[in-house]
């Protein structure tokens, strides 16, 4: 009796999980298959069956990607010492992708530096104002970050970084989650090791570099992947800050494709695939660190 009930519960839960998993995976499948469908296959006419399966129903075509890559721009332009340096000509969509990568990588590097230094002293040092600063960080984390978009834009315009990648990078780095996460990792450093380093005559910088850094390595992994994905997907901030075509990220680029012709599904899906596939690959490679980051960041202390 109980065994029967247990078995039917297990079967029920597996069925429900699989149904949910399909609900979650299907949009991705629909993006990727949609991106290789020819225009005639995309718009389903009444009475016809939906073209579900690749190769039998759909003959894959590259035309959507070709169209996505049609308009071109320079990879970058730099104005330095009166000379204008321009990069090689590339498709606009690749420029958007490059912008996304640049923003995410810079935010990731800066966050790792600032958060590991701050997290370490908050965890291991006793100094005046520590409680106040820590409370400030925690309170800021509980506030909705989108409500500061308007003042952030006027601030960015004032200091002249609006419409540049830094307008997205700086607020992402400023968000205190990373400090919090690295504080959690730094708590695990044995205080005796720090004291031993001091007795051996190591200065503060040296202690941090050769004792602390190796010990909080897993924290860097978690923080790096977390910040990378956060910056990549920080759509509201990107939307407000980056309005010039050349400065757009891939997310903004697809949104622009959708608003210019919302029925050119093949083109939009090709853009969505270009945005989703790289980040999914990065996520899958660094998945282990990612899970660790989410769980460590949650244990509030």
């Amino acid at each position: 009796m109980t065994n029967d009930r247990k078995r039917s519960y297990v079967i029920f839960s597996i069925v429900l999980l699989v149904v949910l998993a399909i609900l979650f995976l299907f949009p991705l499948y629909w993006i990727v298959t949609g991106s290789v469908k020819a225009k005639a296959d995309i718009l389903i006419k009444a009475g016809e069956s939906v073209r579900w399966l690749p190769f039998t129903d759909i003959s894959p075509t590259g035309e959507n990607y070709a169209k996505l890559m049609k308009s071109t721009t320079e990879l970058f332009t730099l104005n330095a010492f009166g000379y204008k340096i321009t990069g090689p000509e590339i498709p606009m969509a690749m420029r958007w992708l490059f912008n996304s990568v640049f923003i995410s990588v810079m935010a990731m590097l800066l966050s790792c530096i600032t958060a590991s230094l701050a997290g370490y002293v908050l965890a291991k040092k006793r100094f005046y104002g520590r409680a106040f600063i820590f409370t400030l960080f925690v309170c800021a984390m509980a506030l909705p970050k989108q409500v500061i978009l308007i003042p952030l834009l006027s601030l960015a315009s004032t200091i002249g970084i609006a419409n540049s990648p830094w307008a997205v990078i700086c607020p992402v780095v400023g968000w205190p989650f990373g400090v919090f996460l690295m504080k959690q990792f730094s708590e695990t450093i044995p205080t005796e090791m720090l004291e031993a380093a001091r007795i051996d005559g190591a200065g503060e910088a040296r202690t941090f570099w050769s004792v602390v850094m190796p010990l909080i390595k897993p924290g860097f992994g978690a923080l790096a992947i977390f910040t990378f994905i956060n910056a990549w997907n920080e759509y509201p901030l990107q939307l407000v800050m980056l309005t010039e075509q050349e400065q757009k990220t891939i997310a903004l680029g697809i949104a622009a494709l959708q608003s210019s012709d919302s029925t050119d599904y093949g083109l939009i899906m090709a853009g969505a695939a270009l945005a989703a596939v790289p980040i999914i690959i990065i996520f899958l490679i660094f998945q282990k660190y990612f899970t660790q980051g989410i769980t460590m960041g949650a244990v509030k202390g």
Partner: peptide, 23 residues
């Protein structure tokens, strides 16, 4: 305290500049 604030400086720069000030 002096050492700690030196370590905190980069984080505080971004936090105060791009979170506290706009708030």
């Amino acid at each position: 305290t002096v050492v700690s604030y030196l370590f905190l400086l980069p984080a505080l720069f971004f936090f105060v500049g791009f979170v506290v000030t706009p708030m």
